[in-house]
Design a protein around this nucleic acid. Structure first.
Lengths: 160, 160
DNA sequence: GTTAAAAGAGATATTTATGTCTCTTATGTG
DNA sequence: CACATAAGAGACATAAATATCTCTTTTAAC
């Protein structure tokens, strides 16, 4: 796969929190894990990392949980890839040759530079905010495996 | 990484064999492994697979070894990726959501289709023959970690 | 047909990514 | 301050990719 499974977990978590957070309500790791069908503690580590990287803000204790860092909506997908997968895909030779560069290119070098640049370009230009849509219900369906009705209802209950 | 380590081994092996094979001389797995610094038996499995997929031809016994299947020069890199890595990168959602498609797209779907198509296009249009150059010596340097002089000399000794 | 060379095949080992479990730390609330 | 809640952290487990080892099969050459 192009990106790790962790990347999928990270991005979906961010989007879920972006959509369902509220001034009155932070999102708990338990909820994210359950609603998005992720392994609870594995996801916990990813969220921790996202906090460390200033994409999320966390709060311990009762009514604690996660919320988006203010600047996260204008953060690129490329940044998320960087955090979960690192930049080796973009910086290193696909044939994994140490001495491959524009001076001493491997046979695939030029073709791959073309592909990588195109990919990087799309990822850098796509912001978290670009991925959110108006239709919350449809959106949540698109990143959840579970039914969404009780979920939106739950949010309504809490935020009122 | 975009492609597996196996892909690198496979492609480099094919290119090495393409370059150094001769009507008089097949290339042994031992030689490929040594010259391209690959783990001998892991590479053996990859070569076996390439034989099964009709990219290489093998011969057992003394003076046996591997040679290119006639059509391999006009085979695309995409085919090699398909053999070593499968097509999941191209066919599946990067967020690994089962129900992601053009009807019910995940938030990244359209962007990724764009990226994947661009990548697939380059890979399909790039043939093994496109990667080979006239300058054999430089070429071998570009896919080997070792010095090439004694290697070309060896070939000269054998093929005369 | 014996022998040596080389691929093929299967068992096992290691590494990396992913997943689970348990305990600790911090904090809001009564 | 006591307590419950939720994140954080570290030990341990499993799965998948990569790597190694040993044995078997095929075949050319004598």
């Amino acid at each position: 796969m192009i990106f790790s499974k962790s990347f999928g977990y990270a991005l979906r978590s961010i989007l879920y929190i972006a959509l369902l957070q509220d001034e009155d309500r932070k999102i708990q790791a338990d909820e994210v894990a359950e609603k998005l069908a992720m392994p609870r503690h594995f996801e916990g580590k990813i969220l921790k990392r996202l906090v460390k990287e200033n994409l999320l803000i966390s709060a311990k204790g009762p009514h604690g949980g996660f919320s988006l860092h203010p600047q996260t909506l204008s953060t690129s997908i490329f940044r998320v890839v960087e955090i979960t997968d690192g930049l080796t895909s973009f910086n290193n030779c696909v044939l994994r040759l140490r001495e491959c560069n524009s001076e001493k290119p491997c046979p695939l070098h030029d073709k791959m530079v073309e592909i990588k640049m195109a990919m990087k370009d799309v990822l850098e230009k796509t912001l978290i905010s670009d991925l959110l849509t108006e239709d919350k219900e449809e959106f949540i369906k698109s990143i959840c495996t579970l039914d969404v009705e009780d979920l939106l209802q739950k949010k309504a209950e809490i935020s009122q």
